[in-house]
Computed example of a mutant assay.
Amino acid sequence: MLRMFVVLVAFCLGVAFATNSQSGVCVIKLVKGKLVSVGDCQKNDGSEIARLMKRDLKMKQKGRCDILYKSKCFHAIVYPTHNANFEDAQAACKKHKWKLGNVYDVMNYLLLQDFFVTMIPADQSLINVWTGMTYTNGNLRLTSGKEATFPEQLWKPYSNTQWTNVVFAVRKVRKKNTRDIFNIAPDWEYNGVLCED
């Protein structure tokens, strides 16, 4: 009964959760109407899902969050064309009293990818999404100034050190050896924006 209730609530809210267990990462998300656990998930009775849903429901009730991750509320903006430079992306977030968002770690990146891929316009194969992160002095940094680290498969900076803004690519079909998170000049125009409360 609890599992059916959890599935119904998750379906209605469009929820995906990520947790850390002692043995690794556990991702719980809704796939084709069913809750699916991927990774090192210790409990299979629905109690962990229910706990996460209660926690994140409180966050979601405060305001519309497209993605909740570690109590951080993310919002996705996607335009039909590549018409938003960095300044436009900042303004889009500010309009809603948000700020440009961060990608905190690999799990956060994967959840963002899963959400943004559903927003890629039908006539496009990928979108690039502005973040508030920066690339300075050879380091990838969050908006707080704290250094962020990602594996080489994801973070591939261009050698132009004057390109200090950071975007991430979202593809309908993932390809190997591509730049997934990278630095770019602020005047380039893309169609995705990641905002955060």
Rank of each mutant, 00 (worst) to 15 (best):
I49A: 14
T136A: 02
V170Y: 03
N191I: 04
M107P: 00
R3D: 02
F116P: 09
M1G: 13
F150Y: 07
G138F: 08
L2N: 14
E147I: 13
C93A: 03
K32M: 11
G46R: 08
K54V: 15
F5A: 08
N183T: 15
R55D: 12
G145T: 10
V31K: 13
D114K: 13
V106N: 02
A169N: 04
M133A: 08
V9T: 15
V9F: 14
N44G: 06
N83G: 05
P151H: 04
S21G: 01
K175W: 12
V117G: 03
M107I: 15
K34T: 06
F5W: 05
I49S: 08
I127D: 11
Y135V: 07
I67Y: 06
C93T: 12
E196N: 12
T149P: 01
L140R: 13
G63T: 08
K97I: 12
Y109R: 14
V7P: 00
A50V: 00
D114Y: 12
Q22K: 12
Q124R: 09
M4T: 13
L13N: 08
K97C: 11
R3M: 07
K72L: 03
I67N: 05
K97Y: 14
L140P: 10
F115E: 06
W98A: 13
L110H: 11
K156I: 11
Q113D: 12
P80L: 10
S159L: 05
N160S: 07
M119A: 13
K95A: 09
A122I: 05
Q124D: 02
E147H: 07
G138P: 01
A84S: 13
F116M: 09
L100D: 01
V9M: 10
I184W: 06
W163V: 00
L100A: 10
P80Q: 13
D88S: 06
M1C: 02
Y79G: 01
Y135P: 02
E87Y: 11
A89E: 09
S37W: 11
S23H: 10
M119H: 11
F86Q: 12
S159I: 01
I184R: 03
G39Y: 10
K34N: 14
E48Y: 04
G33M: 12
A10C: 08
E196D: 08
A10V: 15
V170F: 04
A50M: 05
A84C: 08
T134D: 04
K175P: 06
N139L: 12
Y104S: 14
A10E: 10
L30H: 04
N191L: 09
C26G: 04
N83E: 11
R141P: 00
P186Y: 04
C12Y: 04
R179M: 15
F11S: 14
V6F: 00
L8W: 07
K60E: 01
I28R: 11
T134E: 03
F5P: 00
T81M: 09
N137K: 14
K58I: 13
Q42V: 15
V38A: 13
